[in-house]
């Protein structure tokens, strides 16, 4: 019972933080902030997927979570490198 309430709270908190991150992503003002918002967005997406996994009592979503975590990191570094050097692989 207590876990169900905590789960609902966590769902609400993570969804709200996704929304707030989205506002920062739209607002900018410059590319550094947008990259940061994208990074946070992918981390929050991992949290949301894990929460869905807990709610459904299943392990199926684990692979999705780890792939989003990896892609989030790689894309953050790729975009940052592009802004820094105008090139990704030298």
């Amino acid at each position: 019972m207590i876990v169900t309430y905590a789960l609902i709270f966590a769902f609400a908190a993570v969804s709200l933080s996704l929304l707030l991150t989205m506002i920062r992503l739209v607002k900018g003002p410059r590319s550094g902030d947008r990259i940061l918002a994208l990074d946070t967005l992918s981390i929050n997406a991992v949290a949301l997927i894990i929460l869905v996994g807990i709610a459904g009592a299943t392990q199926i979503y684990f692979e999705a979570a780890i792939i989003i975590a990896m892609l989030g990191f790689v894309s953050t570094v790729a975009v940052a490198r592009f802004v820094l050097r105008g090139d990704i692989i030298e």
Partner: peptide, 30 residues
């Protein structure tokens, strides 16, 4: 399910996790 110590630990981890995720995004915005 009884209110075992494990349940309380799970609930606490969920609440703390949700709060910190929220704090991160609030900070990003504020």
């Amino acid at each position: 399910m009884s209110h075992g110590i494990l349940d309380i630990a799970i609930a606490a981890a969920l609440v703390i996790g949700g709060l910190f995720t929220l704090v991160g995004s609030i900070g990003l915005l504020k």
